[in-house]
Design a protein around this nucleic acid. Structure first.
Lengths: 199, 199
DNA sequence: AAATATAGACGACACGTGTTGCTTAGTCAA
DNA sequence: TTGACTAAGCAACACGTGTCGTCTATATTT
């Protein structure tokens, strides 16, 4: 399928727009391929010529959206610094809130796949590319680059997800600071540190 | 629905067994509710009387399996020590390998929901219960207990998942050690530490 | 402008899903 | 043992899914 064909571009745009609209109105779970196609004034069979199913469309939707956000706010192939890390976390928090508000119609904790994990995947790519650059200091090594990147990306994603799905009484700024602290000083230490009132 | 009724118990067992068998043979995606019901010699409508859909059954399957594993190897309400953490990570790695081997028939990176995230959820409960116990030392606090627990559980889960889905050339023992190191000394530090050969 | 290529429309197909109303058969309590 | 209760069987429903073959309309090439 030729990606430059005007017809293809037009159809893709129609499908994406219809999807975005339905996502806000009825949520992901409630919409059918029928709905998307008819709203896009496109035949249902044509939908399947472009996407495997509505899940694939959703995935593409989230992934490209997040990539755009990152490209806007983060210079390409940035270095691995505290500031950049904090900035990246901020982007994740912001984007998760947006996804959350769209998904709101769908039942939360059911068989609904966790589309947000796509963000973790993107996060992993970014962090790994940062780690591939030679480190400033040369000290002992605790884990493979891949292991560090994957643990970090899931930690950021997971903490962000829980925050975005909670009532968010902690402001995003403060949350990002907490997360940088956790990543910097170690999760394990941070645990023995929280002051506890007896219950 | 009375959980002690022999008919209910019998039907549940039949469904679970049929599901487990089909999971090994054709994988999750390829099996239909039809398949499960007929293999269990149970009417399809009866299936829906017990589970919302096949996703709910899968969730129950994974969750109870993991809970059993934890109960076997970890004494109830254990304390938050290095040894227990390492033990817990070992259980997760082992169980992820098992889940992975069952899922193997289903396409990996497609719309397949990440059932493994149920393990993260269980992990979070355990870690949080550990953190609720008063800490041994009383130092500064970097983050809320919930934040620390959620970041840690996702980090463990994510690193374990990547490991279990890779060719696993690193033995489980060593992997667990690496992960304990990451959690203890901080993910951020560990990143600037990996020796890099120029590329 | 004409010829070729191909995206999209349309209708039809077999199949799986989730639900409903009714009947049969098992369980348990009086 | 009898009677009330209810899980499970059964048949049928409307609906969504994914795919296929055929035809039309729009691009692209010459």
């Amino acid at each position: 399928m030729n990606e430059t064909d005007p017809r293809v571009i037009r159809t893709r745009r129609l499908l994406l727009d219809a999807f975005a609209g339905l996502l806000k109105e009825k949520g992901f779970r409630a919409m059918s391929v029928q709905d998307i196609a008819s709203r896009a004034t496109v035949n249902r069979a044509t939908f399947y010529a472009h996407f495997e199913d509505k899940y694939a469309l959703m995935e593409s939707f989230i992934r490209t959206g997040f990539q755009q956000r990152v490209a806007e706010e983060l210079s390409r192939s940035a270095a691995f610094t505290m500031d950049n890390l904090r900035l990246l976390i901020g982007i994740v928090l912001e984007y998760l809130v947006q996804v959350e508000s769209n998904q709101c119609r769908g039942a939360k904790q059911h068989a609904e796949p966790l589309f947000e994990t796509i963000i973790q995947d993107e996060l992993y790519q970014i962090l790994l590319s940062w780690l591939k650059q030679p480190p400033p200091a040369d000290v002992r090594c605790w884990a493979a680059r891949e292991t560090a990147a994957v643990a970090m990306s899931w930690a950021i994603f997971g903490a962000g997800l829980q925050w975005s799905q909670s009532r968010r009484n902690t402001p995003a700024e403060e949350m990002a600071d907490q997360m940088v602290g956790l990543l910097t000083h170690g999760l394990f230490q941070a645990m023995e540190i929280e002051p506890t009132q007896a219950h």
